[in-house]
Write a protein that binds this DNA or RNA. Sequence first.
DNA 1: AAATGTACCAACCGCGCGCAG
DNA 2: GCTGCGCGCGGTTGGTACATT
Length: 329
Amino acid sequence: MGRAPCCDKANVKKGPWSPEEDAKLKDYIEKHGTGGNWIALPQKAGLKRCGKSCRLRWLNYLRPNIKHGEFSDVEDRIICTLFANIGSRWSIIAAQLPGRTDNDIKNYWNTKLKKKLMGNFYINPPGHSNLSCGMPLAPEQRQHFIDPFSPTIPTLSVPSSSTSDFYELSPFNSSSSSSAATNLQSRETLVGPINMYGHEAASCSSSDGSSVDKDNHHPRFDHHQQVPNNNLQGFSPSHYGNEILGPGDQDMINYGSNSAPLDYYGSIEEIKQLISNTSSSLTTATTNHNNNDCNYSGFLFDVENRSSSPESVAANVPTRADEGVLYYY
DNA sequence: AAATGTACCAACCGCGCGCAG
DNA sequence: GCTGCGCGCGGTTGGTACATT
């Protein structure tokens, strides 16, 4: 009954990987693939490692196209807005950031981004479009500081009609396939939960993409996520390639006229609350969603304007016409 | 220069789910 | 239907580098 034991834990090496081990693992996988069996892999590859450890090492470090180094403002925004929407679902967030792993994002969030947000949680007064986030305010500039934990802080709502209050992240150059009309309409349909689409394996999450998305299924989301399963199909970073966050990303991202780096507007409040109340955030969000009282904001996809060809639907691959526009503010 | 504190990140750990047997 | 393993995930830890005192 059952399968063979995972590994002989007494005979397994732990700790940092040596260059030799890395080379062995990489060489083996490049030649033979994972074979869909991580447990058997280390033995085949001649490694005294647990399969789990091999998997982690490969997915988080050795795999091709892994991005290391600084996160861009664009990535910051995506992380923050997704965090505000779905909480600490790092694999999902990683699916939106080509080349980044969930572990990477998680570390970045815990060590930098969270502090960056918490340290700059000053909400600008009405009429001031920019929430300074990522740019610490001088003490004299903090006259409008609002205690983020104050119960008097209103809950987030979809911002007003000013399009400059929105950031638009299009998978493609804003001047390309996403028509202005579509974008405009999208702005006017800022409703509903997060909707991502296109889900061929592309994530650099420690989930290798094959499991999370291969069957359009995220096990945890299915059971207690606030986001419906069919709304969690990443917008396929691989489809867009690294372009989305590449050197040309400025061409793809229309920040709006009043934008400044790391402006999150109201969503900062949600993020803050999530940070301060991580344990309950998912439950709350789930409840909200289940009650159709979804209070999500800040990271909205154009649902209505999706036009999916039968082919793309069948293959779960977005066509260019299928490209949605991702808005966040 | 040494001690201490802090930040960062790779890796580990434990849990839940799905599936093989 | 039951058992137990494989896998994926998120949380946590430990080691190292850097900063500060």
